[in-house]
Computed example of a mutant assay.
Amino acid sequence: MNSEGGRGRLRGSHQMENTMDILKQLRVIYIEDNDHTRCSVEKFLKRRFGKVFLAENAEKGLSLFQRYHPDIAIVDILLPGMGGLELIKKAREAGETCKFLITSSVSDVTTILEAVDLDIENYIVKPIDPYAFEEKLWRIGESIIKERKRMSAAQSFTLENKSEVEEELRKGFIKLLKEKTGRGPRDAVALLDSHEVEISAYGVLGAMEKTLLRDAKNIGHVEEGRRLLYHIMEQEMAGLVKAATGAFVELRSVKPDAKRDRETVKLFVAADCP
């Protein structure tokens, strides 16, 4: 592995600090049979990750999985005995959900495609470029931290008073829509689950929209206008959910049905909280 000098070209100093903060929260397993490569990469990893565990073959690697359950596993494909891809299959079968990054001295299309089938996060060819390696690890680490935040926020929806919160959201949504359009929906229903809020509204169209719908050619225009309305209202809707549940959400989808005068809005728990 080449020298790490000049790594600042990868990103600015502030971003580098964020990178280190992210990776220091994670555990990584590195499985590589070449002693020189393993030693070199070990130093690189220990400067970045909170916990680093090493193995020189697949059998020892599997025992590390059973003991430490890492967040990230870096696995060489061409291991002696059991190969890297077979190791990953066994780890997946055992229930490991970590992110895998595979390394190899060959860039083989068939191998890469097989790796994709195993839900492997990324692939890097030896000799390892430290800048590309760090960038890939940072991206993987960032995705893990975001998922943890999202799952933590999702716990806010596990509420004993779920029906009361749904009613609070229903009333708040009707009030908000009335403020924005001059008339509220005839009725609305709010539903919570562990990952999202779904709000369905009925009797939402105004007089002008109903007039436009006399010509079937205008259905698409009316529905696009309804979608735009909810994108404009996204921050206010997120505020309603935050006040009721404590969770941060983002707009996932808007499905207007102009013919039936109804629409469904879905907001999902955000990975990044302001």
Score class of each variant (00 low, 15 high):
135 E>F: 08
136 K>M: 15
190 A>R: 00
136 K>H: 13
174 I>P: 05
171 K>Q: 10
154 A>T: 10
186 R>G: 12
140 I>Y: 02
152 S>N: 08
148 R>V: 00
192 L>Y: 01
134 E>K: 07
165 V>A: 04
189 V>S: 05
174 I>T: 10
151 M>I: 05
163 S>L: 06
168 E>S: 14
159 L>T: 08
162 K>Q: 12
167 E>H: 06
163 S>Y: 09
180 K>T: 10
184 G>Y: 06
177 L>A: 06
187 D>R: 10
133 F>D: 01
132 A>V: 15
192 L>C: 06
181 T>K: 10
194 S>Q: 11
187 D>K: 12
196 E>H: 00
165 V>K: 02
156 S>T: 03
177 L>P: 05
156 S>P: 09
139 R>T: 05
193 D>P: 11
172 G>N: 04
141 G>K: 01
142 E>R: 09
173 F>M: 09
175 K>T: 13
196 E>L: 00
144 I>C: 02
187 D>A: 13
192 L>G: 05
160 E>V: 15
175 K>W: 15
133 F>I: 08
161 N>H: 14
176 L>Q: 02
178 K>P: 14
186 R>T: 13
154 A>R: 04
133 F>T: 07
175 K>Q: 14
143 S>M: 02
135 E>G: 12
145 I>G: 02
190 A>D: 04
188 A>F: 04
155 Q>T: 15
177 L>V: 12
145 I>Q: 01
132 A>G: 07
154 A>N: 10
167 E>V: 03
148 R>C: 00
178 K>W: 11
174 I>M: 14
139 R>Q: 05
180 K>N: 07
159 L>M: 07
135 E>T: 13
184 G>L: 06
148 R>P: 00
193 D>S: 15
137 L>V: 10
192 L>R: 03
141 G>R: 01
163 S>Q: 09
150 R>L: 01
166 E>T: 00
165 V>L: 11
132 A>K: 12
166 E>N: 01
158 T>S: 15
195 H>N: 12
174 I>E: 09
195 H>L: 11
156 S>I: 07
149 K>M: 08
154 A>G: 13
150 R>V: 03
169 L>Y: 04
175 K>H: 13
151 M>W: 02
136 K>V: 14
145 I>F: 05
183 R>E: 08
190 A>C: 12
144 I>Y: 02
163 S>D: 08
155 Q>C: 13
134 E>M: 11
181 T>C: 11
195 H>C: 12
138 W>S: 10
191 L>N: 10
174 I>K: 08
147 E>I: 06
181 T>P: 08
192 L>V: 03
152 S>C: 05
141 G>H: 02
161 N>A: 14
168 E>H: 14
188 A>G: 07
196 E>Q: 00
190 A>F: 04
196 E>R: 00
166 E>W: 00
168 E>R: 14
167 E>A: 05
189 V>E: 04
193 D>I: 10
193 D>H: 14
190 A>L: 06
160 E>G: 14
169 L>P: 04
184 G>F: 06
191 L>F: 07
164 E>G: 13
169 L>S: 02
194 S>E: 09
153 A>M: 11
167 E>S: 05
169 L>N: 03
136 K>L: 12
166 E>L: 01
142 E>Y: 08
189 V>G: 05
145 I>D: 02
159 L>N: 05
153 A>E: 10
168 E>Y: 13
170 R>P: 00
148 R>Y: 06
139 R>Y: 07
170 R>K: 08
